[in-house]
Design a protein around this nucleic acid. Structure first.
Lengths: 224, 224
DNA sequence: CCATGCTTGTTGCAATGGCAACACACTTTC
DNA sequence: GAAAGTGTGTTGCCATTGCAACAAGCATGG
């Protein structure tokens, strides 16, 4: 379970204290629901759109194409929000499906209550709006990073662009990758063994060095 | 130039009338600036972050890696908003750079004024907030579409996934592609001639049919 | 201790797909 | 009407990279 105190540590309720959270939960008409693994989580209910906060478990975001094949686009963990991209829009042909990845508890909040300040003018509400913008911004950046990486044509470019982002974020030429080989290959959308092979080649050529999940990028030329 | 009336037709000012727009422009402390081609457009000014509305011209969103190489991530046209993903966040290491693609006029509005209702409680302000959520949602969907497509491994899968999205959007098996061959290859991140080759193969195999920018997808099996 | 599972590195093989070069059609401009 | 620009289809070549199979390392658990 997730206590109000736990919630103050989520991005959605950031900057709001325990008391404020408890007040907001009522003000936002928050409702908790329980799901079994592989249950489909609907974000719409009688025309009202919801944003979900994962209280426990994991939610998988999957996309089905017209042949019925599913792709896992991303997953949402405890304390994270999902559905915001779709719920806050008018025109939503529900682009993706959300499924419980395990036994999961979700707190639903009507999108409208999040967007619009409540009539009582509770002042925590402004904070929620700010937080929502933050969350949307963060997600946007994550998506752009993924695009930057996967839109490169060669395997080597993908690796370098992934490492380049890490270097920019961590501010050092030696970086820790949060992803292990297998997951990294998955993220880059390439074959794992091909990636390992290319990494070895790049190491041999002196372009990069690595050990476990620590990588060092040797950039000869810094200026364009 | 862009009149207040033109602005009512943008996503940012959707649902607001001419009078409201004029009022908001003051209320939002909007400021217009002019740029020459290739000028760098800063979104920060003394710690204050801005959202930009393109009044005329084009703004290119480019990303520079640690070797100084630039990639064009997307471009923003007249009437569209940019910077919202970054401006509305706290933690912004300005992930990308915006450049004028030609002679361009931009209307800047401080992000804070957009997020927070003005003290006078002008009622158009709520609409702007709603609109911003809409814009962020739309952009999120666009980014996810691009990821879905470019994360496929084979050229054929990329094409099919691109077409699948069009089919889902247009609700018919025969769809119009907004992109011509060259741009489509660019969007999919593949070589144009390779794509033409694969399209021809798929046509020969009876999987799809196409003429100019109209494509028909023959899906034998609809159910998983 | 062994068994099992997970991650990583390696390598041969085959094919996918990038590249370059070219031909053709169509449009715009002078 | 020539010339230049742009979008498109085709094809040969071969580097890149996906795939499969295997070995080794390391943790977990009985």
């Amino acid at each position: 379970m997730m206590t109000a105190k736990d919630m103050t540590r989520t991005d959605l309720f950031a900057g709001i204290d325990e008391k404020g959270v408890n007040m907001l939960l009522g003000c936002l008409h928050a409702r908790e629901k329980h799901f079994q693994k592989n249950d489909i989580i609907a974000l719409e209910d009688d025309q009202i759109r919801f944003v979900g906060l994962v209280l426990d478990g994991t939610v998988n975001m999957v996309k089905e194409d017209i042949w019925g094949d599913e792709t896992l686009l991303s997953f949402i963990s405890r304390g994270e929000v999902f559905g915001e991209t779709f719920a806050l829009q008018k025109n939503t042909n529900s682009y993706v499906t959300f499924m419980a990845g395990e036994e999961t508890n979700v707190l639903f909040m009507p999108a409208n209550d999040i967007i619009h300040s409540c009539p009582d003018g509770c002042n925590c509400h402004a904070q929620i709006t700010t937080n929502m913008f933050n969350i949307l911004g963060k997600k946007g950046v994550m998506l752009m990073e993924k695009i930057e990486v996967s839109s490169r044509s060669s395997l080597r470019e993908k690796i370098l662009s992934y490492l380049s982002i890490l270097v920019q974020k961590q501010g050092r030429r030696t970086v820790q990758s949060p992803l292990n080989r297998t997951r990294m290959a998955d993220y880059l959308g390439v074959n794992r063994s091909a990636m390992t092979r290319e990494l070895a080649t790049m190491k041999r050529e002196g372009i990069i060095d690595f050990d476990k999940n620590e990588y060092t990028v040797y950039a000869e030329e810094m200026e364009a």
